Simulated scan of single mutants.
Amino acid sequence: MTSMPEGVTLEQLASGQQFLQISHPSCQATMFLHGAHITHWQPTGEKPVIFLSEKVEYPTNSAIRGGIPICWPWFGASKIEGLNSHGYARNQAWQLANVSSDIDAVVVTMVLDNSAKTPGYPHDALAKLTVVFGKTLEIKLDTTNAGEQPLPVTQALHTYFNVADIHNTKVTGLEHADYVEKGERQAASGEAITFNGETDRVYYANNANTEIDDGERKILVRHRNTGAVVVWNPWRDIASGLSGMQESDYQQMLCVETANALADEIMLASGSTHSIAAHIEVL
């Protein structure tokens, strides 16, 4: 059992789900071992930054809705018939490798090495997630190809952000990026992204810096070692059919995801590692 520094406890739901509860001078946070899933991060003096519905569920064999699901080692539909969308990492318990703390932050490392438990997946892929919970949130996902064959990887830190009202929210930083929506590539709009209906886009932007402005605060997201940013809001009709969400929740959430997706696929040689990272900060 990994020892816990002051301000960090390992707790458990009645269902058996284990989670870290973090209380640090810089922030409050919660992170589940199931899916290495962050469900709460709130810098001291701020409102919660990460969205989670009041109707949230904590399944033991599928993903938690909201928070920051880890889509890995593939994003979207699998190229292998019979495998779930968005990979297996968000559906399984990770191993808690280390927890440390200093005056600035709490650092949590979790690892996943269980591709053999996913029938039909032929690759030996290793994942390590390192999260720095402080005044800012730093998330780094390392993928290592431990097999002999090349490993194709698409992935996303599928972050649900808490916004005051999606109708008054805009995203900047992607004005000059082409994007794919409903399977069609679209030219860059040259304008900030605003929302008046379902939005599901993959923007091709290398190492983008995006800013979410909901009229009450601004959140900066720096995407590193990625060539894509996913922007998603399901809007009312889809939200009403999603587990772990209320019909009205679409108004208070927005996903801006650090990703390698669609054409931005990484091919890892045997023994090599690729890392992606997100830096999240309330401005």
Rank of each mutant, 00 (worst) to 15 (best):
I103C: 08
I103K: 15
I103T: 14
A105G: 03
A105Q: 14
V106H: 00
V108M: 01
V108Y: 00
D113K: 06
T118N: 02
T118A: 01
P119T: 03
G120M: 07
Y121R: 02
Y121C: 01
P122C: 00
L126I: 04
A127H: 15
A127R: 11
A127K: 13
L129W: 07
L129C: 03
L129Q: 08
V131I: 06
F133N: 08
G134C: 02
G134A: 04
L137I: 07
I139G: 08
K140T: 10
K140G: 07
L141V: 04
L141P: 05
T143A: 06
A146G: 14
G147H: 02
G147Y: 09
E148F: 06
Q149K: 15
Q149P: 05
P152C: 06
L157T: 07
T159W: 00
T159S: 07
T159Q: 00
Y160W: 04
F161N: 04
V163P: 03
A164E: 14
D165A: 02
H167T: 15
H167Y: 12
G173I: 06
E175F: 02
E175W: 07
H176C: 03
A177F: 03
Y179C: 09
Y179F: 15
V180L: 11
E181F: 05
G183C: 13
Q186W: 11
A188P: 12
E191A: 14
E191T: 15
A192V: 09
T194K: 06
T194F: 07
F195Y: 10
N196S: 13
G197E: 01
G197Y: 04
E198I: 13
T199S: 05
D200F: 01
V202G: 08
V202F: 02
Y204P: 01
N206T: 15
N207D: 13
A208K: 00
A208F: 00
A208W: 00
A208R: 00
T210D: 07
I212M: 09
I212H: 11
I212W: 13
D213S: 08
D214E: 07
G215H: 00
R217K: 15
R217G: 11
R217L: 13
L220W: 06
R224N: 14
R224C: 11
R224V: 15
G227P: 12
A228Y: 02
V229W: 03
V229G: 07
V229K: 07
V231Q: 09
W232Y: 12
W232I: 11
N233E: 10
W235C: 05
R236T: 12
R236K: 15
R236L: 14
D237C: 03
A239D: 12
A239L: 06
S240C: 11
G241K: 11
L242E: 07
S243G: 13
G244V: 05
G244C: 01
M245R: 03
E247W: 08
